[in-house]
Amino acid sequence: MRSLYDTLHETLKSRGGTHIGGGFTAEYMLLAFFPLAFVALLRGLDSLTSAVLAILVTALVAFSLPLVKKVSRENSDHFAIAAFYIAIVMGLVLFLMVGGF
């Protein structure tokens, strides 16, 4: 089985160019960011649920490595992607404000 490093290296290389260093840093930062951000977001819930959800998120993040390519695709300039996330957030904000909690 190949090491995780090799997998990462090849995926990042397929993006082309000389920016593997940046890609690696981004990868590790994302690994740190996602669980932390979710812990911060989930603190409105009770501690057991938030702990379970945080572990779930960490597992999801760990299994979907490498993340950089996916994240940069989701943040591209394409109209449809922007529209997709805007639709989600518009629904989510109203749900959390009016219906949630």
């Binding site: 394409h78 449809a80 992607i81 529209a83 997709f84 639709a87 989600i88 518009m90 629904g91 989510l92 109203l94 749900f95 009016v98 219906g99």
Partner: peptide, 27 residues
């Protein structure tokens, strides 16, 4: 490519827009 993602995600986006519309109409 983006077109496939777009088609796959239409349903999700429609669900969330539906939630949005329900709350707006309710208000």
């Amino acid at each position: 490519n983006t077109k496939d993602i777009y088609e796959m995600r239409t349903v999700v986006a429609a669900v969330f827009l539906g939630i949005f519309s329900i709350f707006v109409l309710k208000a």
